[in-house]
Design a binder for these strands. Structure first.
Lengths: 339, 339
DNA sequence: ATGAAAGCGCTAACAG
DNA sequence: CTGTTAGCGCTTTCAT
């Protein structure tokens, strides 16, 4: 493997000069530079990033801590879109991405800061960890720049990007209210997700603003899982047949709800309106097509990477980015036919 | 940032002993080791992988060169499943993954071996590059262990994992023939994909074995794109209305074909049988649900990682893995109602 | 404009 | 069982 030493030998200059020439410093004779560049090409030279990282104390890498890189979560390609967005931005930067593959077992072995320190990543992007994840504390305590996706924590090294979940949820519920629904339930995720908290807030706000009562027993947790949501919806709809609409905190859970409705022979949307959240790929392909709140997931990834690199390059403090949402009316919501 | 030097100072031993103690060498006094371990924990020590890589000349990282980490390819989450499989395996190994984000622009700047050499990756997994990609040559010439996904190239450093595409295609076509179809067209991908080549081969073999003629004008390329396939199918079905079934080299293209059929008011499966390939997520969710050849994409990723790590650890020569396929009969294929 | 020398944090002979 | 020393490939003062 060619090193700058080899190039120095061949060109007859010192390693210092080679280093400077290759890194574009100005204080190198143009002729010398040309020669060095030519030789390094001939010798097929590539700099050793490890050596460089070691001395420069930065690695030009961004650590990625994402959930959803497991078999079970192939259905909601949320993670893929996040990755695509991140990748799109970093491809044009000179940062590379390292995927921290953290299974639950491994996670117990290595702390967050160990993960980062070992690889000396310059910054981190985190998505999909729960609010009760011990890593979260470390992120704040550590002084490694970090951008969180959908986790509202902000410090002088930590920023985040999210969508307006309160507003999104309100939009969804107002859509149902506008269709005449008054008995609206909510299929939430779980208590360890910030988005759940916010979407619940939006749900309640919308009801209150419409002078509609809040039935706590109509708010259930489907764990962001299609199967769990199906079971929970089955119970809910059996016990409270007067419910005419359900707002779901994720599309996957909305699919579960629709399955439950089918099992109970309830027609969607005529017997029950269902609205989801996320606008995952499947939303527009299932039958009937799912009405949902669309968020630009790709954009979140892109924005996270952009924000992080900006922080890294400019030393700017990371801040907060909130993206908008959009109501996509499809075929699972319709006018309330009961009173 | 704590280094072994610091630990050596505090514990009163040499850096060598610290290094040996921490790396589990046997020739260290157990008491000394315990002390060193205790202190390194107290001081929150993490080894610097860059320093280690530099001296050991290996990095414990695997480079990932995948397509489909772009906005446009979110529909077929092939890449996500590959990544999930790879991740699943490497999570339990001590390898980390680095994502080479290679846009077309960047690709022209850096050669494959530059990419690998800079990061000193120990091995590479490649998916989704075309047969005319210049990187492919480099892969073979380079002496970095590599496992290719769906690209049949084999050398003493390069192995691959794939499914039996000839057999898979035959299975699909035989299914159609079994339903009485005799006028079967093929929507292929493009000439720069190995899978296309093989699936075409299987298609032809199946026809020949059934004593059916091969109409070359019934074989068209949809570029693995839903839109292109729709247009091509539109032409094909307009010009050759006697076609009763189409075998598509990917599910995405099958969706395009179904759209074309809809535009031409041809009922699927009664007026036209359509069979896809891949069994992507959407296949089972569209209406009518798509009959297709299922391949275990997750398993391919897992197998690729397993094979590569095995090569890396044991120094074994990479070899060839061929996975089976499975016919999933759904609702887009039915008996031939014409003659 | 160029070079000598030091050092980033670690491992690996070699010596004791 | 432990320490000394050298060196991985690179950047960076500090001289010249």
């Amino acid at each position: 493997m060619t090193t700058i030493k080899d190039i120095a030998r061949v060109t007859g200059v010192s390693v210092t000069t080679v280093s400077r020439a290759l890194n574009g410093y100005s204080d190198v004779n143009e002729k010398t530079r040309q020669k060095i560049i030519r030789v390094s090409k001939e010798m097929n030279y590539s700099p050793n990033t490890h050596a460089r990282s070691l001395v420069m104390n930065k690695s030009k890498t961004i650590g990625l801590l994402v959930s959803g890189l497991v078999k079970s979560s192939v259905k909601d390609n949320f993670t893929l879109q996040i990755l695509a967005g991140i990748n799109q931005f970093t491809a044009d930067s000179d940062y590379d991405l390292v995927l921290f593959s953290t299974t639950s077992t491994k996670q117990r072995e290595k702390t967050y800061s160990q993960l980062c320190k070992e690889r000396r990543v310059d910054g981190v992007i985190i998505q999909g960890i729960r609010t009760d994840d011990p890593y979260l504390l470390e992120v704040v305590e550590s002084n490694i720049p970090c951008v969180l996706i959908d986790i509202p924590i902000n410090s002088n090294t930590v920023g985040y990007i999210t969508t307006d979940n309160v507003e999104g949820a309100k939009k969804a519920v107002n859509h149902l209210i506008g269709l005449g629904h008054k008995k609206i339930a909510m299929m939430n995720g779980h208590e360890f997700a910030f988005v759940s908290k916010n979407r619940l807030e939006g749900f309640k706000e919308a009801l209150v603003e419409a002078d509609l009562p809040i039935h706590n027993e109509w708010i259930v947790n489907g764990e962001f899982s299609e199967e769990a949501a199906e079971e929970k919806a089955l119970e809910l709809l059996t016990e409270h047949p007067d419910i005419t609409a359900i707002f779901c905190a994720s599309d996957l859970m909305a699919l579960g709800v629709m399955k439950a409705a089918k099992r109970l022979a309830i027609d969607v949307p005529n017997g029950l309106s269902v609205i989801g959240y996320d606008d995952i790929l499947l939303a527009s392909y299932v039958t009937p097509a799912l009405t949902t709140i669309s968020q630009n997931i790709y954009e979140m990834g892109y924005g996270a990477a952009k924000q992080l690199v900006h922080t890294l390059e400019e030393g700017a403090e990371p801040n907060v980015i909130t993206l908008g949402t959009e109501l996509k009316v499809r075929d699972t919501t319709g006018p309330c036919l009961r009173r």
